[in-house]
Nucleic acid binder design. Structure first.
Lengths: 177, 177
DNA sequence: ATAGATTTTGGACAATCGTCAAGATATTAT
DNA sequence: ATAATATCTTGACGATTGTCCAAAATCTAT
């Protein structure tokens, strides 16, 4: 996954993966039937690490301010420290537009991420005695779109990318939940 | 571009592009310095075709209903008829997360698309004597996210993908503009 | 300790990749 | 028509790809 996150799907070969691991290239075919199988396993592995990222903040927060602060902080931290791994997610999601074998796993992760965003927004709303005013799908689309854009700007060296994302989220979240 | 749209960046070789064209593989290096250069030119070429898609509808519409109807229709048509070309866009945008050479062009197209969405929403708002209530960036993130999701579902064979997108947009646009 | 199962190695394979260059062909200018 | 330029073809190259396999190494159970 580190190699994939560094090079991207298109430029990653099994030999490169093996070389940056503690194994040789031959052993990969002992555990994975082929390249697609290996990538699929990576996608599945990614999911588990990702979809509970904000859960602790969500359940611990006792006020809208506290939740907002924790969410913004975690969001910033993610872009700052895990940009490479997240660009891999967007890469693989795009690959699923072409490679049928990836679609089910990608769709499942997408759903899990949508649920995660929904949990945050629902909690934020309920802490104000309200309910979210947009659908799950729209909410996810919005935050995913903002995150993706921030990621691209950040990786391009734009120092204001994270600050702008924070500002945007701080303005938007109270209007939708 | 047709070959790229069919196979995706990762699986497309110069020889494959040549084979599906009227030329041989050698001639590509007469016009393009290397593979990255060729893809960059494709990205730039894509832009011109894309960013004025809704302009006629936007300027012709005389009421919110008319604009909504035209926008929904064009949106559906795009997903239905040009899904393959649009998955190429998402593919190349993801590639720009890894390949620095793509970033400037991708960022420029992204900006143009944002402007395009903004023009639609602004017009929709002004036809109701209003102004959009969210930022350009948020608006684009929202619609781009919804479109991307719809595209994935549509390509996976989900017959309800387009209808769901229409429904979502019909509900959202009046609340943001 | 020994036999059997499991895991790992490293090389071989055919196929494909991007790139290049020499020469053939077509176009244009005089 | 002829020369000069532009365009295209073809074959070659070294490198890399995914896959496979026989043999070596390691582990496990008795």
């Amino acid at each position: 996954m580190e190699t994939l996150a560094e090079l991207g799907y298109a430029r990653t070969s099994l030999r490169e993966i093996a070389q940056k691991s503690e194994f040789t290239h031959g052993v990969l075919h002992y555990y994975f039937s082929d390249k697609v199988d290996l990538i699929c396993c990576c996608v599945r592995h990614y999911k588990a690490k990702c979809v509970t990222r904000y859960d602790q903040i969500t359940s611990a927060a006792q006020s809208r301010d506290e939740l907002m602060k924790g969410f913004l902080e975690k969001l910033s931290e993610t872009v700052r420290d895990e940009a490479r791994m997240h660009r891999l997610w967007y890469d693989l999601r795009s690959q699923s537009l072409f490679e049928e074998a990836f679609r089910d796993d990608v769709a499942e992760i997408d759903k899990s991420l949508e649920d995660m965003v929904w949990r945050v927004a629902s909690r934020f709303a309920s802490l104000g005695g309200r309910q979210p005013v947009v659908s799950r799908g729209a909410l996810y689309a919005l935050f995913d779109g903002l995150f993706q854009r921030c990621l691209l700007r950040h990786l391009s060296g734009d120092r204001k990318a994270i600050a702008d994302l924070r500002e945007e989220v701080e303005r938007l979240l109270p209007t939708v939940a």
